[in-house]
Amino acid sequence: MTLLWWEVGARLGSALVLGSMIGLERQWRARMAGLRTNALVATGAALFVLLSVLTPGEGSPTRIAAQVVSGIGFLGAGVIIRDGVSLRGINTAATIWGAAGVGCLSGAGLYPIAAAGAVAIVLANVVLRSLARKVDRTQSETDRRYLYDFKAVCRDAEEAHIRALVVQSVTSAGFVLQGLESEDLGASGKVEVTARLSGKGKQGTELESAVSRMSLEPGISSVSWRVVESDPEL
């Protein structure tokens, strides 16, 4: 197949412009692979496809495109960084992969599909970003574990009975008992029983129900609870 010089230029120009459009969003987000990287990836992919198109019989464009995908995999791996137990840069690597696909389409002369692909990649990075953050916030609130102190003040003679009631009340509500201690309140003849609890998500309603049940016990003078701390990794 013989291409005119202007058609070669149009295919390369399409790859350059569409790759730049993808990279502009990455540059604006201050990511490692920004404007130039995505533009070069798309243009390079178009060049490889053009090589196959201009040398018929040596290899099909689809086979060359498959090799481009493999090569881009190594490039994408270079932008992925391990940060503790998490990985950063996976989205940028996927964007580079998509830019290579847009470049291959441009090199093959499939301009509308290449343009549609570039728009889809930009929309995925821009529009889905806010949705992903909302999902992350929802999951983080659900997965976050909270520590609570559940306290009951009772008569000294009722201490053993109240300790057993506290444990039964909070564990039946789905909390994990982290510790249980009693403290004499001076010469008042009363004891403060404190249970340290942990639970996933905010469980104020369950604690209020436990307070209501415990306050009905005749040996108890006061019941209260408070949040000690919250930790998503607790």
Rank of each mutant, 00 (worst) to 15 (best):
D143H: 03
L105W: 10
G98P: 02
E217G: 15
L40R: 14
Q139W: 01
P232D: 05
V223S: 11
L128I: 10
K190E: 15
A157I: 04
V135S: 06
W97T: 11
S14R: 01
I121N: 00
L185D: 07
E141Y: 13
R36I: 07
V17G: 03
S140A: 05
L165W: 03
A195M: 03
G73L: 13
G179C: 08
I81S: 13
A116G: 10
G107C: 08
R129T: 08
A118I: 01
G23T: 11
G107W: 04
V228Q: 01
A15R: 02
V176A: 14
T2V: 09
I113V: 00
T37E: 06
K202V: 07
G23S: 09
F150S: 00
R11F: 02
L185Y: 11
D143V: 09
A33C: 04
S222Y: 13
G9S: 13
L180G: 07
L16Y: 06
A66L: 13
F48V: 08
R129Y: 15
T171C: 10
E217F: 12
N91H: 04
V68S: 02
G9K: 11
L87A: 03
R196Y: 05
A173I: 02
T92S: 14
A10H: 07
G23V: 02
E217R: 15
K134N: 08
E206D: 07
V8W: 01
A114R: 03
G101E: 03
S60F: 02
E208P: 10
L197A: 00
F150E: 00
W6K: 15
L50T: 01
E233R: 07
L110I: 00
A120E: 02
R226K: 12
G19M: 03
L165F: 05
Q27S: 13
E159I: 05
A33F: 02
R82T: 07
I220D: 03
G71E: 06
V135A: 03
V17T: 15
L128A: 00
N91G: 04
G174Q: 13
Q168W: 04
G201P: 02
L51P: 03
R31M: 12
A33Q: 03
G23M: 09
L123Q: 13
V49E: 01
G204V: 11
P61G: 09
I113Q: 08
R26L: 11
V170I: 15
G84E: 04
S188W: 06
E181C: 14
V49M: 05
K134M: 14
A45F: 04
G103R: 07
R213G: 06
G189Y: 14
G186L: 07
E233C: 06
L177D: 05
S224T: 06
Q168R: 14
R129D: 04
T55L: 12
A100S: 08
R163K: 12
R155G: 06
L177E: 10
V17A: 05
G174S: 14
V170S: 10
A42C: 13
E181Q: 15
A30V: 14
G199W: 09
M1G: 08
E159H: 13
H161L: 14
A210R: 01
M214V: 10
E25Q: 15
